[in-house]
Design a protein around this nucleic acid. Structure first.
Length: 808
RNA sequence: GCCGAGGUGGCGAAACUGGUAAACGCGCGAGAUUUAGGAUCUCGUGCCGCAAGGCUUGUGGGUUCGACUCCCACUCUCGGCACCA
């Protein structure tokens, strides 16, 4: 028998697959299309990660099955090569990013090919290719033209290590930069922003049109953070000015006792009375100077200053002191809060700190109607209104509606919907990104580069370290920066900020459809054929980053008629990450990184692919185990041997034929549902049965076919070299299972007494469905008899073909 | 605090619409083969017990003839969000 040598057979078939171009997708093919998308990688210096290998080989198996089922499958890949990590890596290597990126791409590509992934390489794209980013820039100009890109001086997140601004989505909950892990700061800086907020409602609503796994959809809903409330305008005593607050709980307004303004609120300056002025302005200055980190480190301890003015609560005629405190955020609502200390814990803490009046207007389910003195008494959620005139006795929900109507009728305010989602900070002060195609002219102002002059190519610079001054390194390139204004021809300067790394990934899946198009980002007819993406597989960490951004951009492109669908991805699933053998995140510093190259060299790509699918549920985080890998290697070796020794020129025995059809069914279903772990288990179960038996040539072919998606090389080798079939197995059809072959002639019926298993009986399948027959059989069962002796059977529960339960 | 996911053998995990809990793999034990190791093959392997039998899906309760699965309460772990009005 020939030994199984993956190191010999794998490269052989990889070459032949490439030569025969069997994985190329065909535009406009009459077969039904299927577009499988994986997140294209950033080609890091570390090379392919076993995490990449996991999701790509699983989706490869999925795509291979789709192809065999007769779909015209598009499974493409490209490179997301702009951005901070690429720049940082190049700096570390002392090379230009264009060089390191090219090297890294070459390595990644080789690694993908060594894994035998069925990507359509004819459609490979690279976001740093000027022919590609021409269209990234074109999209920016379209956004500008439609007023969705604008410049503003806003507080932005700043990473002092990477020396650049960041989007909110790039800053983690504890204020750390998601890429480098260092603390970020807030800075005021003139920035390009994109009005993603204008699409907030549609991004929310249209989640109903797509099939995203619930946790992805829910996280997007939370991030968009729609809140419906009301803006209430209060008169300020002895002043012209009025103060507007946003609240979702107007029902508690009979309990409102004070107002708090954010330190940045423009009203502070105007209304603060002389006596308190100095103290207040000092507080404002101090609050503005605080970093995020400092604010967080103070915890919930409330600080603040009084302005000396009072707003009037029209419901109660109560004079509500107006305070300034940094717990009110200028970036949320109107930057002003009405304090209801009895029914909001934060307001309570503030009132306690500064000895402000507390009124109870809700009695909770505990019935406590006493004066509110302790935080535990603050009833925020449920209860019945009290001390609230026309609201008394109503539930919170009813009272809220009633009060909203009342306020609107009285003309004190109007309903307002707000979102947590912020506009997207879209400029970075770095070299390695798409130049923003803008010219700043002293006469004409902001002038877009004419579309015929795109792309604005990134100039080659020797020194591209970030300056840290808030200016992009491109600013030093005077030759490049100084241009004539496209409008008036007078001397002007180019925009030197570049786009964030998310820019190129907003629309890359459209470019795969038409990678060489020089006239448009992708042709409408090709989009009409291929779009939407049928399944998009990626990391959960991109839910509120890339996934949300690209939906926004796609909707915009749809609105201007540049794409054919309103949503880019029909279905989205995420996968779990692969941890190191020590159960920690793989990282150089832990020394627990597993390199796929070494695994391929030692065990072969098929073993690696199989193990990555087998290691655990696809959407769940799992630790790497070399032992588990060996189990998969053994499986392939056993299968290899069985194909050589246990295939006969005879009909397959009945029990094994039945198992084969059951396995075909299981593999078919599991692949469709992305249950890769149980699909591999099913294949293993089958060969365990096969090892005591034999298959006919015809049935051995069927098994090879269902093995092919998961282990494509060994399947091809067996197909062509052992079974003597024609190249290629991956272009054959998908086996159909035959329900008739799966029928069992004998069924095991479980016998229970009082719900406890007391015995079992094997009987003919037809008989197992007849109650009387089974009951007689069961009552005389040797093991069961003693449990029934001397007892009276009160009830008999019979599940046809499954079990019988005597209740005594 | 809020939102989400999860807790099953020594380990990774299975279990359809409520119907034999632990499939498959790892590990472990015994044996075969081998000069030895490794590899391979065979058998065994949830826990307690010599056995009969009993116990077992984070904890406590409930519904049911029957619960990993459904309901209620609690608890722990992980992911996300958070002075968000």
């Amino acid at each position: 028998m020939k030994p199984y040598k993956p190191q010999e057979i794998e490269p052989k078939w990889q070459e032949k697959w490439a030569e025969k171009k069997i994985y190329q997708a065909k535009d406009f093919d009459p077969k039904p299309k299927f577009y499988t998308l994986i997140e294209f990688p950033y080609p890091s210096g570390a090379g392919l990660h076993v995490g990449h290998a996991r999701s790509w080989s699983a989706m490869d198996a999925f795509s291979r099955k789709k192809r065999m089922e007769g779909f015209n499958v598009l499974y493409p890949i490209g490179w997301d090569a702009f951005g901070l990590p690429a720049e940082n890596y190049a700096l570390k290597m002392g090379q230009h990013p264009s060089q390191t990126v090219a090297e890294n791409i070459a390595r990644f590509k080789k690694q993908c090919q060594d894994l035998g992934l069925s990507f359509d390489w004819s459609r490979e794209i690279n976001t740093t290719d000027p022919k590609y980013y021409k269209w990234t820039q074109w999209i920016f100009l379209q956004l500008l033209e439609k007023g969705l890109a604008y410049r503003a001086k806003t507080p932005v997140n700043w990473c002092p290590v990477c020396k650049t601004t960041l989007a909110d989505e790039e800053v983690l909950a504890d204020g750390l930069h998601e890429r480098c892990g260092q603390p970020t700061e807030k800075r005021q800086q003139e920035q390009w922003l994109l009005r993603i907020t204008q699409y907030a409602q549609r991004l929310l609503d249209d989640l109903g049109l797509v099939d995203y796994s619930p946790k992805i959809a829910i996280q997007q809903v939370n991030w968009i953070g729609k809140k419906e409330g009301i803006n209430i305008v209060y008169e300020i005593e002895k002043m012209e000015e009025k103060v507007t607050v946003f609240t979702t709980r107007p029902d508690t307004n009979f309990g409102a006792t004070f107002i708090v303004l954010a330190p940045e609120h423009p009203l502070v300056e105007k209304i603060v009375v002389e006596e308190y002025r100095e103290k207040a302005l000092n507080y404002v200055a101090a609050a503005k100077a605080k970093t995020e980190e400092e604010r967080i480190s103070q915890g919930r301890k409330k600080t603040g200053v009084f302005t000396g003015c009072y707003a009037l609560n029209p419901l109660t005629n109560l004079r509500m002191p107006i305070w300034v405190s940094d717990f009110a955020l200028m970036s949320f609502g109107t930057g002003a809060v009405v304090g209801v200390p009895g029914h909001d814990l934060r307001d309570f803490e503030f009132a306690k700190e500064f000895d402000l009046k507390i009124i109870r207007v809700v009695v909770g389910p505990d019935g406590d109607a006493s004066e509110i003195l302790k935080p535990e008494q603050v009833q925020e959620q449920e209860g019945e209104m009290v001390n609230s005139d026309f609201l008394n006795g109503l539930s919170i929900a009813v009272a809220t509606k009633k009060m909203m109507n009342y306020i609107e009728q009285k003309g004190w305010g109007g309903r307002q919907t707000i979102f947590h989602l912020r506009d997207w900070v879209f400029s970075r002060q770095h070299y390695w990104g798409e130049p923003i195609p803008i010219v700043h002219c002293p006469k004409c102002g902001i002038v877009p580069v004419p579309k015929k002059d795109l792309p604005v190519e990134l100039p080659f610079v020797e020194r591209y370290e970030p300056s840290g001054t808030g200016e992009s390194p491109l600013a030093k390139m005077t030759d490049w920066v100084n241009v004539k204004c496209p409008e008036c021809q007078s001397p002007a300067k180019r925009e030197t900020d570049t786009m964030p790394n998310w820019a190129g990934s907003n629309w890359y899946f459209l470019r795969y459809l038409d990678p060489d198009n020089e006239k448009e980002l992708s042709s409408l007819s090709k989009m009409k054929y291929w779009m939407p993406v049928d399944i998009y597989q990626g990391g959960f960490e991109h839910t509120t980053l890339h996934l949300l951004y690209s939906r926004f951009i796609h909707k915009f492109l749809y609105d201007i008629g540049a794409v054919s669908t309103s949503e880019p991805y029909a279905k989205r699933r995420s996968h779990g990450i692969v941890l190191g053998p020590d159960n920690r995140k793989m990282s150089k510093s832990f020394g627990n990184v597993v390199n796929p190259d070494e695994i391929v060299l030692k065990y072969g790509a098929d073993t690696l692919r199989l193990y990555e699918m087998f290691m655990g549920p696809f959407d769940q985080t799992t630790a790497w185990s070399e032992k588990g890998l060996q189990g998969c290697s053994r499986f392939l070796n056993r299968a290899w041997r069985l194909f050589q020794e246990n295939v006969r020129e005879e009909e397959t025995p009945g029990h094994l034929l039945k198992k084969l059809h059951q396995t075909i069914k299981k593999v078919t279903q599991d692949l469709e549902e992305l249950k890769f772990n149980t699909l591999v288990a099913a294949l293993m179960e089958f060969i365990n049965d096969w090892s005591d038996s034999y298959l006919s040539q015809k049935d051995a072919e069927l098994f090879t076919q269902i093995l092919a998606p998961a282990a494509p090389h060994i399947a091809e080798e067996i197909w062509c070299e052992v079974l003597g079939k024609e190249f290629s197995i991956h272009q054959t059809g998908w086996p159909q299972y035959d329900e008739k072959q799966m029928i069992e002639e004998m069924t095991t019926i479980i016998i229970q007494v009082n719900g406890r298993v007391r015995g079992e009986v094997k009987i003919k399948d037809q008989i197992s469905k007849i109650k009387n027959e089974v009951e007689n059989e069961a009552k005389t069962n040797e093991r069961v008899v003693k449990y029934l002796q001397g007892k009276k059977i009160k009830k008999t529960v019979f599940v046809p073909g499954r079990l019988i339960n005597f209740v005594v």
